[in-house]
Amino acid sequence: MILSGFRNPPFLRRVESVGAMMRDMIFVLLALLMIPTLYYGPRVLVTAVFSVASCMAAEILFALFARKDIHFTELSSAVTGLIITMLMPAGISYWAPVTAGIFAVFVAKAPFGGLGRNPFNPAAAGVAFVTLLRPAEMFQYPDMSAGGFLPIFAETADASVSSPAAALRSGFRPGMYPLDMLWGQYAGPIGTTGILVIAACALFLFARRAADWKLTASFLLAAALYAAVFPRVIGSPLTSIKYELMAGSLFFCAVFMVTDPVTSPRTSVGKIIYGALAGILTMILREFGRFEQGACFALLILNACRPLIDRGVCSWMIWKEARHESNERKG
């Protein structure tokens, strides 16, 4: 389809709007939500509803507060809400996604000027905030080996299992084969365990240009390299890579959070540098940090460096251009 509601040329454009990009994101995230729903039951969906609703409410509240127009067509707060859901453990009480959503939009996004101007990834900020508030609850995963679904409204049972990421952190080999981990039937945050589905989502997003493959590739490569050089499990470097990449939220973050165009660099070289640094920092935080997941914190730190990386790359290009120019004048 061709659109023509623009004031400046070109008057005919393809529908490549922010809204369309966000719709792609939402479509993919909803597809990703299916597996945990089948596994944990409808509680996951309720968590998602709470999280999205709190993000949207925060957006409306801020617009009222700051007397600004609301543009819901961009749908970015829904994406933030869904990503927050994906990073929560399944049995967590509802205050966590709600707090994370409100913090993400009301503190990390809207005050900076909304979509496109936020320096920090809102979802990462929200999740990091909740992790700091209640670390114990954030890493408690319900035991689903008995079968059945989680109750929707009651507090979940105390029985909890440790995740492969926690096992890696304590220096053990997780109690399952890497091949089994591909299907996502293991303890971890809601949307981050279905590695195969996430990979399919990634391909879709790359093809639709809603995410940049350079970021994901450099992030994963750097993390894999780190895992191979400093393995935490006994075995070949390959085993270490397989476990490290599949455990926890790393793979999900590589596809959905590192690729956030607003908070990642805009130059190609900058993207590769940013992705690689984020990968290494995530692994360092995992190994030496307080928590078993480090991706959100690593991202927040690198978000702050984003303008610096872009500036550096552009300065390098300008220097190259100036040198080229002076060479031409001489020769």
Partner: peptide, 10 residues
């Protein structure tokens, strides 16, 4: 059509 801030998609 509403214009947004640059989202940095490149």
């Amino acid at each position: 059509i509403h214009t947004y801030a640059c989202i940095g998609c490149g």
